[in-house]
Simulated assay, not measured.
Amino acid sequence: MIKDFLLNDCLLFKNMTDDNIKSLSNCFKMNIKTYKKNDYIVKMDDDIEYIHIIYSGTCIIEEEDYWGNRSIMDVVLRNQVFGISYAYANIKKYPVSLVAKEKTKVIIIPVSKVFSPCSKHCVHHNTLIKNAVEVLAIKNISLMEKLEHISKRTTREKIISFLSSFATKTNSNDFYIPFDRQELADYLLVDRSALSSELSKLKKSNLIDYHKNHFIINYENKL
């Protein structure tokens, strides 16, 4: 069962009341599915028929090349949306996969329902379409952030760029990242051993401290 009030923080439902969301839920015939850790929610080359909202849990967007090498494009957290940019671009098949990092519940919405105003021409449906544009803008910013990180010349510079960006977004020098070591290496497009080595050097220099995915940047020392 979908609890409408839990969707209030989802950007797709911005400026909507619980009644508005409930109305859209019925109109869209929203369905919720549960996935185990490492389950594929979407596989590369699947037909794009649905938009996915992460109701609970965390997912990663990954891409594999012809030889099976994986790169992580982004992470999708609770109340975030996946698939809307591909649907808007009228792409027929997913060029990436969506994988559950943990037990995850996902709301499934047919693409045709989102982009075609309903027969009732309700105002909140129009609001949702406007919100979808904002979701696309944020997705674009996220992509630009990744390009900024991976464009750095060295592994050290990529790590510093990523951690600095995370500290800025969380407005804190003490934060948790949504990746384990292998996932972070895949996200930054670097070798895992090289990543671990550079993290260790930064820690020994007292520039950062970390334990698993918990990081602290020491501001008194410049990176």
Results as ranks from 00 to 15, higher is better:
residue 1 M to V: 00
residue 10 C to Q: 08
residue 174 D to Q: 11
residue 18 D to K: 15
residue 73 M to D: 11
residue 162 F to S: 12
residue 182 Q to T: 09
residue 39 D to H: 03
residue 145 E to F: 15
residue 70 R to N: 09
residue 115 F to N: 09
residue 151 S to T: 14
residue 122 C to W: 11
residue 86 Y to V: 05
residue 101 K to I: 06
residue 180 D to N: 15
residue 10 C to F: 08
residue 95 P to T: 06
residue 129 I to Q: 11
residue 117 P to Q: 08
residue 30 M to S: 07
residue 202 L to G: 00
residue 44 M to D: 04
residue 203 K to L: 04
residue 197 S to M: 12
residue 72 I to R: 01
residue 52 H to P: 04
residue 195 L to E: 01
residue 44 M to P: 03
residue 9 D to F: 06
residue 73 M to K: 14
residue 203 K to T: 03
residue 62 E to H: 10
residue 223 L to S: 13
residue 204 K to W: 00
residue 127 T to N: 15
residue 185 A to I: 06
residue 220 E to L: 02
residue 94 Y to F: 15
residue 215 F to A: 01
residue 171 N to E: 13
residue 213 N to M: 02
residue 87 A to I: 01
residue 118 C to G: 09
residue 193 S to K: 13
residue 214 H to M: 04
residue 140 N to L: 14
residue 19 D to N: 14
residue 184 L to G: 00
residue 73 M to Q: 13
residue 159 I to V: 14
residue 200 S to P: 05
residue 138 I to N: 13
residue 91 I to N: 05
residue 72 I to F: 00
residue 5 F to P: 00
residue 179 F to L: 00
residue 205 S to Y: 00
residue 135 V to P: 12
residue 216 I to F: 04
residue 104 T to W: 02
residue 30 M to T: 12
residue 118 C to L: 10
residue 40 Y to R: 07
residue 19 D to H: 12
residue 203 K to I: 04
residue 76 V to H: 07
residue 51 I to R: 02
residue 49 E to Q: 06
residue 34 T to D: 03
residue 183 E to N: 09
residue 114 V to A: 06
residue 11 L to P: 01
residue 87 A to N: 07
residue 166 F to D: 05
residue 120 K to I: 10
residue 125 H to M: 08
residue 141 I to C: 03
residue 87 A to V: 05
residue 195 L to A: 07
residue 22 K to W: 04
residue 157 E to V: 07
residue 166 F to Q: 13
residue 16 M to S: 07
residue 3 K to Q: 09
residue 56 S to G: 01
residue 35 Y to I: 02
residue 134 E to K: 10
residue 10 C to L: 02
residue 32 I to F: 00
residue 135 V to N: 12
residue 206 N to L: 09
residue 98 L to H: 05
residue 62 E to Y: 09
residue 166 F to P: 01
residue 68 G to S: 09
residue 9 D to N: 15
residue 126 N to D: 12
residue 22 K to E: 11
residue 95 P to W: 00
residue 198 E to V: 08
residue 222 K to G: 00
residue 220 E to D: 04
residue 96 V to L: 12
residue 5 F to A: 12
residue 50 Y to I: 01
residue 114 V to R: 01
residue 51 I to M: 03
residue 84 I to F: 07
residue 43 K to H: 02
residue 174 D to S: 12
residue 39 D to T: 00
residue 48 I to P: 05
residue 112 S to Q: 14
residue 94 Y to M: 11
residue 168 T to M: 14
residue 215 F to E: 02
residue 11 L to W: 01
residue 217 I to Y: 01
residue 120 K to L: 14
residue 213 N to L: 04
residue 116 S to P: 01
residue 70 R to D: 01
residue 7 L to G: 02
residue 102 E to V: 11
residue 194 A to C: 10
residue 9 D to T: 10
residue 186 D to Q: 12
residue 66 Y to W: 09
residue 198 E to L: 09
residue 72 I to Y: 01
residue 180 D to H: 09
residue 26 N to Y: 02
residue 29 K to C: 13
residue 18 D to Y: 12
residue 170 T to H: 14
residue 123 V to E: 15
residue 57 G to F: 02
residue 57 G to A: 03
residue 94 Y to L: 08
residue 45 D to M: 08
residue 64 E to M: 10
residue 32 I to R: 05
residue 28 F to P: 03
residue 151 S to Q: 13
residue 20 N to Y: 10
residue 199 L to F: 04
residue 37 K to W: 03
residue 181 R to G: 05
residue 177 I to V: 10
residue 124 H to C: 15
residue 71 S to F: 06
residue 23 S to W: 07
residue 90 N to M: 07
residue 16 M to Y: 07
